[in-house]
Amino acid sequence: MDEPLLSIRDLCVDYVSEAGCVRAVDHVTLDVSRAEIVGVAGESGSGKSTLAQALLRILPPPAIISGGEARFEGRDILTLSETELRELRWRRISMVFQSAMDSLNPVISIGEQIVDTLVAHGAATRQEARSRAAELLEMVGIPAPRVDAYAHQLSGGMRQRVGIALALALEPALVILDEPTTALDVIVEREILQQIRGLQEKLGFAVLFITHDLARMLQFSDRVAVFYAAQLVELAPAAELRRAPRHPYTEGLLRAFPSVQSDADEPESIPGAPPSLLSPPAACRFHPRCDRVQAICRERQPDLIQLGPRRAAACHLAE
């Protein structure tokens, strides 16, 4: 088998503050192949955005990448120099930010923000870049004359599309989508996801798709990674995960979205609240909320065990 596009090994990210050290990404190991769509699911605060930003090395100051490796196209992202990083950013890996509302600069026109990117990477001269920006906007369904518009003149859905057009500007090998549709209504959401899917089939980039909407994720992704309290707890192809989850937390998530399992009559939320990362529960982090908790769950932390060629789960019951 050839090498995956992105191969994350034991990645750890800490937020260091006076209140203590919060490990927001804890020994995460995950591969993404070329042209594959990998979904990342997990409750709010489970470290999904932190993981995404770590891959571009754009984490804000209190965060430090404290261990592990993230090999992308054969090179470890975590050891690249500033110049090498600038080469990697956007040309090879791009990202649609979680908050489309805030991620466009309010005083620069959307066209200029795309042009800047193309020019910075030497992909085009300013004149060429302008018509290329218009093309990109048309590709995501925004009329070309709107290149001169500013973020505040666009609806939430349009801004999100601008974010997507921007992310595809340099035809990168990996696009990270951090909850690209959270602020949108269901119809616009479906439209945008279909659009991304179409573009992905045409252009062949890999996608790391982050969301807490498990139903959408299962439709959209090839493989799904489930995060709980900064750790990867289950990894499986979407269809298998839906049919036979191996981690009680995944089961809980599936039950919480009735549209996923049509036979479930009522959505059932997982009892309890997500743990604080400042002092996570000992041993298995899910044990206080687990309905099948055993003695061993309180004593030892489960390893991520390989359950098949493409499946893994971190649960003592799955062994």
Partner: peptide, 20 residues
């Protein structure tokens, strides 16, 4: 976020700081 996005786009630090 928009400055972080500018950084992610691979712009030089001076361009991020001055223009964005």
């Amino acid at each position: 976020d928009y400055v972080n996005l500018a950084r992610a786009k691979g712009l030089t630090p001076s361009r991020v700081v001055l223009r964005y």
